[in-house]
């Protein structure tokens, strides 16, 4: 009996050390910066196809490199899974640079339901996954041609997805625009409460599947999970 007890204690300690090892081997490694400086930059990203395939390529021009997305009647995203989910309250900021070359033509879908008009030349997702999948939440930062700046809307797909217009109109089209957002503040504005779930992923998408047209954008210098120095 005593021997059994000793074995049990030994196994418990070994198991605890093993678990602690696993937990501490994952460093938070925040902030995470994506300069898209080489073709391998996309190795960390997973492709998620919704309808057809959007081309996501790292391109460079002179000394600059960036991510280029081109959609021909397609919708697919690239998705970065955060290795260790983090509290947005601890690292609330996200920033990126983007440029839209071509917006999907939504004019022809003016009278169609929202779900059929859900095309954006560029959007950035911050995803808060939940253990119970239908409780997952997502914030989508979009560049919209018509909706006003900071306009918050509920996605036609799910009330757990909220869209925030962070760039409006075509006046900046064709130019690099820098965006910096406080995810916690935006989440509060969109959902009415502070995020209870941790940030688990970031995704980028250009889609033109509903409009069956073309959407073209560029992304660069995505920086997630940092605090704003005051």
């Amino acid at each position: 009996m005593k021997k059994l007890k000793k074995i049990f204690i030994f196994l418990s300690i070994t198991f605890t050390i093993f678990l602690a090892g696993i937990v501490f081997s994952f460093d938070i490694s925040l902030p995470k910066w994506f300069p898209f400086s080489a073709e391998q930059s996309l190795d960390e990203w997973e492709e998620k196809i919704l309808k057809g395939r959007v081309t996501y390529e790292v391109k460079s021009q002179e000394s600059e490199s960036y991510l280029h997305s081109l959609s021909h009647s397609a919708a697919s995203a690239i998705f970065y899974r955060v290795r260790q989910r983090y509290r947005a309250q601890d690292y609330p900021m996200i920033s990126w640079k983007w440029k839209v070359e071509q917006f999907p033509d939504k004019e022809k879908l003016r009278f169609r339901p929202g779900i059929e008009k859900d095309d954006y030349a560029a959007r950035v997702y911050v995803i808060f996954p939940s253990m119970i999948f239908f409780n997952s939440k997502a914030l989508e930062y979009v560049w919209d041609e018509t909706a006003p700046l900071d306009y918050v809307s509920i996605s036609p797909f799910s009330s757990n997805i909220r869209l925030i217009v962070v760039e409006s109109g075509k006046k900046n089209a064709g130019e690099w625009v820098f965006e910096e957002r406080n995810v916690v503040e935006d989440y509060k504005k969109a959902f009415g409460v502070a995020p209870a779930l941790r940030v688990g992923a970031v995704a980028l998408m250009s889609d033109a599947d509903n409009t069956e047209g073309v959407a073209e954008a560029y992304f660069d210098e995505i920086n997630i999970g940092y605090k704003k120095e005051r």
Binding site: D118, P129, A201
Partner: peptide
Amino acid sequence: VFSLMAEQLAIPESIAYNLMPVF
């Protein structure tokens, strides 16, 4: 099954559009 499918689909719209009706 649902968690794995949701994890695989990953993009919220895709989950809402493809998985939720099945669910």
